[in-house]
Amino acid sequence: MTRPWIVVTAIIGVALFEVAAYLRARDFMLVAAGVPVAFALCCFVWVLLRPEKREKEPADEMENGPAEMLRHWYARAEMLVDRADGSRADWDRHLRPLLAKEFQLSAGLRVSKNRRAMENAGIHLFGAELWRWVDPADSALRDQNTPAPGRAALDEILSRLQRM
């Protein structure tokens, strides 16, 4: 983007040199007009060659995209792990839906198709004690007094899902 002051300065300079050259010496009119044009051209080239300081654009943010995304993912994972030590309501609100969805995707089962088959597969994979923390139907969102199973149970559930 050219700066408007460069163009305005060049036009005013040409006009002043033309007037001065016309009044003083008509022989130097071409040289007098060339000085401001050369100045404007030099300024234009200088503006084009120097890097402009722009505000961050979405393209600039995309360059840091993977690192930024990894940082956000890590922060979210830490937050979810912290929920494992909270109340049952925290577990049911934040962890249970993720674990149940991951189990359904890994097993290829859907609750809407065959609830009993999904429950049997869950008990078989996790055992009755851990399945109650993954089962999407066993949610108690208002139970603020009962503690969540903790990080050890979350780790065991995740390792069993990984082995699946």
Rank of each mutant, 00 (worst) to 15 (best):
W73E: 12
Q162D: 14
E68W: 07
D60G: 07
D138Q: 15
L141A: 08
A137M: 13
R163C: 10
P97M: 02
W73F: 11
E102F: 03
V19P: 00
A84G: 00
V37E: 01
V8M: 14
C43W: 11
R116D: 09
N114C: 08
W133S: 11
E52K: 03
A100R: 04
S159N: 11
E102L: 07
Q162V: 08
M164H: 14
I123Q: 11
A25D: 05
E57P: 02
R142G: 15
A33Q: 04
A75G: 08
A77Q: 14
A25S: 02
F17T: 08
A121C: 11
S87I: 02
W5K: 02
E63P: 01
A84N: 04
W46D: 01
Q162R: 15
M164Y: 15
T9H: 04
C42W: 10
I123H: 11
P136H: 13
C42T: 12
A107D: 06
D27C: 01
L41F: 15
P66A: 02
A38E: 01
Y74P: 00
F103D: 07
R88A: 00
S112E: 13
M29P: 00
R116E: 13
K56Y: 03
R76W: 04
A84R: 03
A153E: 15
W131R: 10
D85R: 14
V31L: 12
G122L: 09
C42D: 08
A121F: 11
A25R: 03
L30S: 07
G34K: 02
R76L: 12
F44Y: 13
G86A: 13
E57Y: 03
N120E: 14
R24I: 14
V111S: 15
M29N: 00
R24N: 09
G150I: 05
K113C: 07
M69K: 13
M1P: 06
P147R: 06
I123W: 06
V19A: 13
L41D: 03
A40I: 04
W5H: 07
F17Q: 10
R54Y: 01
M62G: 00
Y74I: 09
V7S: 13
R93M: 10
F39W: 11
E78C: 05
S106R: 15
S87Q: 02
L125V: 03
V47I: 12
L30K: 00
V14S: 02
N64A: 10
V7Y: 14
V37P: 06
M1D: 07
R116L: 07
H124Y: 10
P36K: 01
P97R: 06
V19T: 10
S112M: 09
E119G: 09
E61C: 03
S159R: 15
F28C: 01
A67P: 02
R71V: 12
A67Y: 04
G65N: 07
V81M: 10
P51Q: 03
L95M: 04
I157F: 05
N145D: 15
R115L: 11
R93L: 12
F44C: 08
A10S: 08
P149A: 03
A128E: 15
E18W: 10
D27N: 04
A84M: 03
R115S: 14
A121Q: 08
M164E: 09
G127A: 04
L41T: 12
R76V: 07
G127D: 14
H72P: 00
